[in-house]
Nucleic acid binder design. Structure first.
Length: 294
DNA sequence: ATCCTATCCTGGCTGC
DNA sequence: TGCAGCCAGGATAGGA
């Protein structure tokens, strides 16, 4: 599903079609996509505005608008599971699941399709309302091994749900959380305050390298949903180590990949490479083994 | 403080 | 072939 690498790809590929263009009109086929703003109000807010900048924050596509060279609010998009932005000629055939479209001043349209209707396009004059509570960008300069080690130590949460928490770290979703934990050789059920400094550094480096490589491959496509704005699938699914590979051999040790549910999310990992956290029972077993050995 | 559940949605899958 | 029922998944709200 669209996570940081996919959203980064989307922003990068729609940007050249939008920056400098002006919105002429809006077409809204599913009101709730606007997050509560009435379609008329939405159209009034964006019509005549010019796209000044198109960028990404966490999993949000952020479009800065201006009028007369002055800031005039933001269009903020979230793809959730099945949302898709793309730019087409106005006469191009429309997708069955088109929810919102913005006509541009060059005969093209920015379209938002979304099968499951969870995606949103907000118009706001206060972008902090939407973006203010987010944690640091994993590829930004605030995200350092030292910061991560300290933040992990100060909480007592399971690693997997913590990595999915956008107020902790912004941009990881189910795929890249699983991939990062495997690369760092950390079990998804480890408690954050049990992670030592070298392990935190491993996790930091794993997150960065996984995301960087996934961006290079234009994200991951393993079902019918995510496609780039140009309609092509991403390529990172070819490099998955654990996600969607239940039962297949681990790329490191060749033992079968396991799948469990953590925090209501399917979680893929290698039992051999990512050692389970010690429980009371496993501590006792370990002691017993040691006694037998000696 | 943290976890758990329900909610929002629908296409696609499983099982009968 | 048809159909019911379940599932995935990001984010959030409310309750434990």
């Amino acid at each position: 599903m669209p996570e940081l690498p996919e959203v980064d790809t989307v922003a990068r590929l729609i940007r050249p079609h939008l920056v400098g263009r002006r919105v002429v009109a809006a077409r809204v086929s599913w009101k709730r996509t606007l997050g509560g703003l009435a379609p008329k109000e939405f159209e009034r807010s964006v019509a005549g505005a010019k796209f000044a900048r198109v960028w990404r924050r966490a999993k949000f596509v952020v479009m800065d608008l201006e009028r007369d060279s002055k800031p005039a609010g933001w269009l903020v998009g979230h793809l959730r599971m099945t949302g898709r932005f793309h730019v087409e000629h106005a006469d191009a055939v429309r997708d069955d699941y088109e929810r919102v479209a913005l006509a541009l001043d060059n005969g093209r349209e920015l379209r938002f399709d979304d099968v499951r209707k969870f995606g949103r396009i907000w118009f706001t004059r206060d972008s902090e309302r939407l973006l203010g509570e987010l944690g640091p960008e994993p590829l930004g300069s605030d995200f350092t091994p030292q910061w991560l080690a300290g933040e992990l130590r100060s909480r007592r949460r399971l690693l997997k749900p913590l990595l999915l928490d956008q107020t902790f770290l912004a941009g990881l979703g189910n795929i890249y959380a699983d991939e990062s934990l495997h690369r760092a050789k950390l079990h998804p059920l480890r408690r954050s305050d049990s992670v030592n400094a070298p392990e935190a550094t491993r996790l930091h480096d794993a997150i960065r390298s996984v995301l960087t490589r996934a961006i290079e491959r234009d994200g991951s496509s393993f079902d019918a949903f995510y496609r780039t704005p140009e309609g092509r699938p991403g390529g990172y699914q070819d490099e998955f180590a654990v996600y969607d590979r239940t039962g297949e051999p681990c790329v490191v040790c060749e033992r079968p990949i396991s799948k469990i549910v953590v925090g209501q999310r399917g979680t893929h990992f290698c039992k051999s490479c990512q050692r389970a956290p010690l429980t009371g029972a496993s501590r006792a077993k370990r002691r017993a083994r040691r006694r037998t050995a000696s």
